[in-house]
Amino acid sequence: MASYELNAFDRFFDVSLVAAVEQISPYTLNVGYWLRDSNQLIEFPPMVAGHPRQDFLWEETCFEIFIGVKGEDYYREINLSPSEAWQAYQFEEYRYPEDMPPQAAYDIDLNQLKKTHYGLSVSVDLTEFMLSNKLKWADLFMGLTAVFKTSKGTHYYAMQHSSPNADFHNKRDWLHVF
């Protein structure tokens, strides 16, 4: 299991976030997000039942996983709300197609999503994505991000920020390799 401290783009230090990744063979990915928000600044969306797919989750507090394929332009984005709603999107290349909301990716499925006392825990099934694209774990790399709506504004957390603006789609910042 690998873990990463995610950093706020605007150097907001009131909230800290650590994410851990665990690959469960053959096609399951588990990610845990541990949050420290001592002053309870984060605004959480209301809970929903049944883990529905919903668009525009990033407009509220949201955790995200980006999955890239070495040597390829296409990638997937998975949005995970503390409300326990989720969505997966497919892109052919950097932010393309430009549809809003983006095109849903039905080759990724949710095993489990749970808001916890420490943050968020998720298990996603990559079987169809990996098999249809003939991928092995070694072909993938990943970025972990989060958007926090707080009483002090919106803050963007990522493994690293190499763009002049917060840009979760920048593959240079997707640091986890399998």
Rank of each mutant, 00 (worst) to 15 (best):
R172N: 13
L126A: 07
M47I: 08
D55P: 08
L144D: 01
F13P: 07
G68A: 08
N39H: 10
K70N: 03
P46F: 06
L80M: 09
Y157P: 03
E84L: 03
A85K: 01
L80D: 02
S16E: 12
Y89L: 10
D167H: 05
A146K: 11
E5T: 12
P82I: 00
E5P: 05
A166H: 12
F141M: 08
N133E: 11
Y156G: 08
Q23M: 06
Q87I: 05
K134G: 15
G143H: 08
Y118F: 04
L17G: 02
V18E: 09
E77K: 06
D139P: 14
V177A: 13
L120C: 13
V124H: 01
L17Q: 03
Y106R: 09
L140V: 09
L110A: 07
L120W: 03
L17F: 04
S83A: 09
L17I: 10
R53E: 14
N30W: 02
F13Y: 11
Y118Q: 08
M47V: 12
E22C: 10
P97H: 01
A166T: 06
I42T: 01
E43T: 13
L175E: 15
E59P: 00
K134D: 10
V122W: 07
H51V: 03
N7H: 11
L35H: 06
K115M: 03
K171T: 13
I108T: 15
P45K: 15
N165M: 13
P97E: 04
V31F: 00
P45D: 13
F129R: 06
Q23R: 14
V18T: 11
R11F: 12
E59N: 07
I78Y: 02
Y27W: 10
